[in-house]
Computed example of a mutant assay.
Amino acid sequence: MLESMTGYASLKGEGQGHSWTWDLRSVNAKGLDLRLRVPDWIEGLEPAVRGALSKGMARGSVNLSLRINRDDETGALAVNAAQLEAVLSALQAVEERAMDKGISLAPSKASDLLSQRGVMEQAVEETDSKALLAAITAQLPELIASFKQMRATEGQALEAVLADQLEQVSDLTQQAAEAAEARREEAAETLRANLARVLENADGLDESRLAQELAVLAVKSDVMEELDRLRAHVQAAKDLLAQGSPVGRKLDFLMQEFNREANTLCSKAQSVDLTRIGLDLKAVIDQMREQVQNVE
């Protein structure tokens, strides 16, 4: 089954006094480009996430973000002893300086001290980062599975479109073969008539040179080789679709080969019908190439 490089998944979790939210999305790219935004205070988190994503996909520009919140942000308050000591030392210095100047200060209250910035703070328990890492990374398989399911759904739609376009190429190739066969007798008759006129008006003509020129003309007008290769490319593309992802790179290369044969067919056409079919082929192949850009 094909997978698209376009996908999205989100997931929420909680544990170890924390809650978190995953956001995973991707678009098409030539290779695998992983861009992660995860907290750096959890040791080993980024390598674990990067490794899991690398195993789960082969191509795409992938962006993942993880937001973590602590559940006890409204916990009990505690005195910051160091900050209190700094405030008391400052207060003592102020009082001594005031006494030297003969200035009497009102007595300080405990509430005045506690209101100073940094004296009171939340009592936060030390986080067990290893346990939190285990809880978070345990969700990775579920997140990646949901993400790949969306890519697979998109891939099914892509596969159906590509299969239909391959059938169009196959039908146009058959039409080109029929047009080339119908043109064959007319081209041969025209060539015979032109050759007769040349022979009538050319004394001492080098017959071997004439034979070589005729052979070159025949090769330049013969499109059967291009049609055979187009048929082979159609079968190769169908085999790749049946194989399933990752085949995007191979399909992309095959689109170049399709386009090369269609261009050659147009250059050799020498008839309105064959030229029209060649242009129709080029249009369908270009549409296929656009779809293939999103196949993993």
Rank of each mutant, 00 (worst) to 15 (best):
197 R>V: 10
88 L>G: 08
225 E>D: 14
101 K>F: 08
28 N>T: 09
245 S>W: 02
130 K>H: 02
40 D>V: 03
114 L>M: 09
22 W>G: 01
242 A>M: 01
118 G>Y: 09
226 E>C: 10
247 V>I: 14
16 Q>F: 02
130 K>R: 10
18 H>Y: 12
23 D>L: 10
10 S>L: 00
132 L>G: 03
112 D>N: 10
119 V>T: 11
293 Q>G: 06
68 I>W: 00
186 E>P: 00
214 L>G: 08
109 K>L: 11
61 S>F: 11
277 I>W: 05
272 V>E: 11
158 L>G: 11
141 P>C: 09
185 E>I: 00
133 L>C: 07
35 R>G: 09
57 M>T: 04
17 G>M: 05
187 A>I: 02
242 A>G: 08
241 L>W: 00
131 A>I: 00
101 K>E: 14
1 M>L: 00
226 E>S: 06
195 L>F: 12
70 R>D: 06
161 V>R: 13
87 V>H: 04
177 A>I: 01
165 Q>S: 13
43 E>T: 04
182 A>S: 10
208 S>G: 08
66 L>H: 06
152 A>V: 03
45 L>Q: 08
42 I>C: 04
272 V>P: 06
214 L>K: 08
110 A>K: 00
245 S>C: 08
41 W>S: 04
289 R>Q: 12
13 G>A: 03
288 M>K: 03
103 I>D: 05
29 A>D: 15
59 R>E: 15
76 A>S: 06
37 R>Y: 08
169 V>A: 03
151 R>V: 02
44 G>F: 02
2 L>M: 07
241 L>K: 01
64 L>P: 10
165 Q>A: 13
294 N>C: 08
24 L>D: 03
25 R>D: 04
219 V>H: 05
10 S>F: 01
230 L>V: 07
113 L>Q: 04
198 V>L: 15
117 R>W: 07
191 L>N: 06
278 G>I: 03
191 L>D: 01
134 A>L: 02
121 E>Y: 03
28 N>S: 13
258 F>I: 01
147 F>I: 10
224 M>L: 07
129 S>P: 11
52 A>E: 12
36 L>C: 11
148 K>S: 15
167 E>H: 10
151 R>T: 03
95 E>H: 12
279 L>H: 11
93 A>G: 15
287 Q>N: 14
189 E>D: 08
84 L>V: 04
13 G>E: 05
235 Q>C: 02
71 D>C: 06
152 A>D: 03
282 K>D: 14
246 P>R: 09
264 T>V: 09
142 E>I: 01
160 A>W: 00
206 D>G: 09
116 Q>S: 07
196 A>W: 05
134 A>C: 02
21 T>I: 00
279 L>P: 02
71 D>Q: 12
132 L>F: 05
71 D>N: 12
36 L>P: 12
203 D>H: 05
23 D>S: 14
269 A>D: 12
116 Q>K: 04
56 G>M: 04
177 A>V: 03
182 A>E: 11
245 S>G: 05
99 M>L: 13
239 D>K: 09
114 L>W: 03
33 D>E: 15
210 L>P: 14
192 R>D: 09
33 D>R: 07
138 A>D: 14
23 D>R: 12
197 R>C: 07
224 M>I: 01
275 T>E: 14
156 Q>R: 14
194 N>S: 14
181 E>V: 01
